[in-house]
Design a binder for these strands. Structure first.
Lengths: 132, 132
DNA sequence: ACAATGTACTTAGTAATACAAGGTATATTA
DNA sequence: TAATATACCTTGTATTACTAAGTACATTGT
């Protein structure tokens, strides 16, 4: 992380960069908790593998959710530990690189419904405070 | 606080409680990042003190954002460190307990606008993925 | 008179998680 | 043969909401 102290002369570029960093900080924090919901949502229709989830997330959100793989996989492992998804490796199809498919469980679907409610409550609350 | 380990037989009550804990977990994470925005928003119209912010947050959000004071004050200190708000103690008025008023700065207003944009982008992205 | 509750601010510690940055391995394209 | 894309894995860091404790004074109840 960049230090404020070593910016030297505070030029326009430095300020613009600082603003980007600040926005990144908030963007990062605002995503917390939502990503689990989005991953479960994408798995609701059919089992998918990691890279596929990343691409669909990017496309469906229209370039807003650009997940790194290092972000997604820990989420999938966590969901699996919690029993919300199960995984199985694809059997080798020709020279296809093996893929690990994740499938949502019944418990996962129920939890998804609940998390959706939480999201709605919170975003409603935000709207009420922000509007005036 | 009740421990999961001492629930004994996993009865309906135990499961219900687990679900509450899970939802709490997601609710907690989803709030990350938005609280700064909401606090700044409440300070936009006029300077306010801690307890006042907690109450307005509760009322305006219709009981959705129920902040503990131990949650709010660190947020205020952080905002002050970042130069987004400034504080000053109220001069003694009768036997009124002294209050520390927080006022949003010009920089704070600019940041608030930016954070609002981030929030809109993210919640739009969520809606796009969740609807189908 | 004393306890309980409410107001008002402070602080230390914990749990959770998005991301960066590294890694492995294979397939395709230039 | 070098680069790029696919596909998965792992460690470490920064941030932050919350719990739980504390201090201090005012008000209300019994």
């Amino acid at each position: 992380m960049r230090e404020l102290a070593d910016v030297g002369a505070t030029d326009a570029k430095g300020i613009a960069e600082m603003k980007v960093i600040m926005n990144d900080k908030y963007e990062r924090q605002m995503k917390k908790g939502v990503l689990d919901m989005l991953v479960l949502r994408l798995l609701k229709s059919e089992a998918k593998y990691g890279y596929q989830i990343i691409q669909e997330m990017r496309e469906k959100s229209e370039e807003i959710f650009l997940l790194k793989d290092g972000t997604l996989y820990p989420i999938l492992y966590r969901l699996e530990d919690d029993g919300l998804v199960v995984s199985k490796w694809s059997e080798a199809v020709g020279k296809q690189v093996p893929r690990k498919y994740y499938e949502i469980t019944r418990e996962g679907k129920r939890t998804l419904d609940e998390i959706e409610d939480v999201w709605k409550r919170i975003s409603d609350g935000v709207v009420r405070i922000m509007e005036d």
